[in-house]
Design a binder for these strands. Structure first.
Length: 234
DNA sequence: GCGACAG
DNA sequence: ATCTTGTCGC
């Protein structure tokens, strides 16, 4: 497990963080379809917190996109780098997630985030931010619609409806299991919305949430427990 | 001004 | 996210 510190130039205020989002947003690539779903690698990333001890643990789990078998795992722990503010989640998660991704030997392929990409107040959620910083194709799969609205998709798995703000489509509410609450898919970087949904469906043969995020969730919690016991150096 | 609000 | 018991179901 790698240990990371907060970058020296990390934003301190919400205003600074929003300015960074506004600057980086222009680097998002939206006109690439991305890797064909079911080929290559897919990497789930997730983060767990211990606010008491000011600790954050991240995990990156690389899966074979065809078989969903684990190819490689990596974790990192550090100090919490930003408070939770809706719309600024990325500043809380990114340093540790990047460290976990960096310590991977395998090609991450497409990165699947637990949160949003384009479905964001400034169209630059965690998945977009991570995509721009790494250059990797990325998508966001969130458990909640946040401030966006949607019509209930049909009951069968695979049904979807647009996730909208006003008349702008920012993502999709996608049913990944029959009759189960949909997940909210949005594009991060270098992946089309159609392919983002296709990836999500391939990653959900059995459960509501993608195998990638389920694996990453379990792993970062384990990493947090170990870090809590051992503590962080210095 | 008040409430809502990814994780 | 995290705090938390039991409970229903495969």
């Amino acid at each position: 497990m790698r240990t990371v510190s907060i970058p020296g130039d990390w934003p301190t205020t919400e205003a600074q963080a929003r300015t960074i989002q506004d600057e980086l947003r222009s680097r998002v690539v939206l006109d690439e379809p991305g890797p064909a779903p079911g080929t290559g690698h897919v990497t789930g990333v997730d983060v767990a917190y211990d606010d008491e001890r000011d600790l954050v643990a991240a995990a990156a789990v690389v899966l074979d996109a065809a078989t969903l078998e684990v190819v490689e795992e990596a974790t990192a722990v550090g100090r919490v780098s930003f408070p939770y503010v809706p719309g600024l989640l990325a500043f809380r998660e990114i340093p540790t997630v990047l460290a976990a991704l960096d310590s991977l030997r395998a090609d991450p392929g497409t990165v699947v985030c637990d949160g949003y990409g384009r479905a964001h107040p400034r169209r630059f959620g965690l998945a977009s931010h991570l995509g721009v910083l790494t250059g990797l194709p990325s998508i966001g799969v969130a458990k909640n619609p946040f401030t966006f609205s949607y019509e209930e998709p049909g009951t069968p798995r695979g049904s979807f409806s647009p996730l909208v703000e006003g008349d702008e489509e920012v993502g999709r509410a996608l049913r990944t299991q029959d009759g189960v609450k949909p997940v909210f898919v949005s594009v991060g970087h270098r992946v089309s919305l159609d392919n983002a949904c296709a990836h999500t469906l391939r990653l959900t043969p059995r459960y509501r949430l993608p195998e990638s995020t389920r694996r990453a969730d379990a792993l970062c919690r384990r990493a947090l427990r170990e870090a809590t016991v051992r503590g962080l150096p210095e």
